[in-house]
Simulated assay, not measured.
Amino acid sequence: MTLLRTLILVVVTFVARPAAAADPQQLLQQFVDGVRSLSAQFEQVQYDERGAVLDRRSGDFALSRPGRFRWNYTQPYQQLMVCDGEQIWNYEPDLDQVTVRPAGRVLQDTPAALLAQGSQLSERFLLEDGGRDKDAQIVRLKPKAADTDFSLIELWLKDRGVPQRIRFHDALGGTTDVQFTAVSTAAIKDTSRFTFTPPAGAEVVKLEDSGG
């Protein structure tokens, strides 16, 4: 799974609502149709098929539906992704490079698009009740399409349905596990967080509308 797709899958999965329903279809629909804003700190760990750690990162993010987010890696190095609803900007300070591509095409056929736009999840996913893990309800999403980058997504929902953890299983047996802290559903008033202007002198690469 590419870094870009991993970021997208994680970021726009975050929309919260009270999760009283036990049925996974209803639970996820409540999750999708919930509050408009979300912010949190995160730690992301990527494992290979044997469980060995490949990568560990941390940072913060903010989400404002529909379709705007800011995903900011701060450790062990900086990287920033901003989606203004129309374009996705990916800035790597160490390379002094910015890549930009149309958001709609990149998000197409991913959980990011489905969850951000409020589509019926059952159209493209098989939903399962994953049981409970302590005080969290686990919901499992299996893509119906065969040509996806992932084979399973698991969501841990608690505290009125706010997600606390997401785990992605890729087609090669690896996993990406994201844990969240300091989660807030308060309205984000500073909308400038969801716009991006390339720094002076940075190389800007405009990628084709290929969804890659």
Rank of each mutant, 00 (worst) to 15 (best):
M1F: 03
L3E: 14
V10Y: 12
V12E: 13
T13R: 14
F14R: 03
V15S: 04
A16H: 06
A20Y: 05
P24D: 06
Q25S: 09
Q26E: 12
Q26A: 14
L27S: 15
Q30P: 01
S39L: 03
S39A: 09
E43V: 12
Q44G: 06
V45T: 12
Y47H: 14
D55P: 06
D55A: 14
G59F: 00
S64G: 05
P66L: 06
G67H: 06
G67W: 01
N72I: 01
N72F: 08
Y73L: 07
Y73D: 13
Q78L: 00
L80T: 04
V82E: 12
C83G: 04
D84H: 10
E86T: 10
N90M: 12
L95G: 03
V100M: 08
R101I: 01
A103N: 08
G104R: 05
Q108P: 00
T110D: 02
A112W: 00
A113K: 12
G118P: 02
S119N: 08
L121A: 14
L121W: 03
L121G: 13
S122Y: 15
R124D: 09
R124I: 02
L126N: 10
G131D: 02
G131L: 04
R132C: 03
R132G: 00
D133Y: 03
K134Y: 11
D135A: 12
D135H: 08
D135W: 01
A136P: 00
L141C: 13
K144Q: 12
K144F: 01
A145F: 06
A145Y: 08
A145H: 05
T148V: 05
F150S: 10
S151E: 08
W156H: 14
K158G: 00
K158D: 07
D159H: 12
V162M: 13
P163S: 02
R167H: 06
F168G: 13
F168K: 10
F168N: 12
A171Y: 00
A171V: 13
L172N: 06
G173R: 05
G173V: 03
G174I: 14
T175Q: 10
Q179E: 08
F180Q: 07
F180L: 11
F180R: 05
S184F: 01
S184H: 00
T185I: 13
A187E: 04
K189M: 06
K189G: 09
T191G: 09
S192Q: 13
F194T: 03
F194I: 11
T195H: 14
P198D: 15
P198A: 15
P198G: 15
A200D: 12
G201D: 07
G201I: 15
A202E: 10
E203M: 05
E203Q: 07
L207Y: 00
D209Y: 11
D209S: 09
G212M: 11
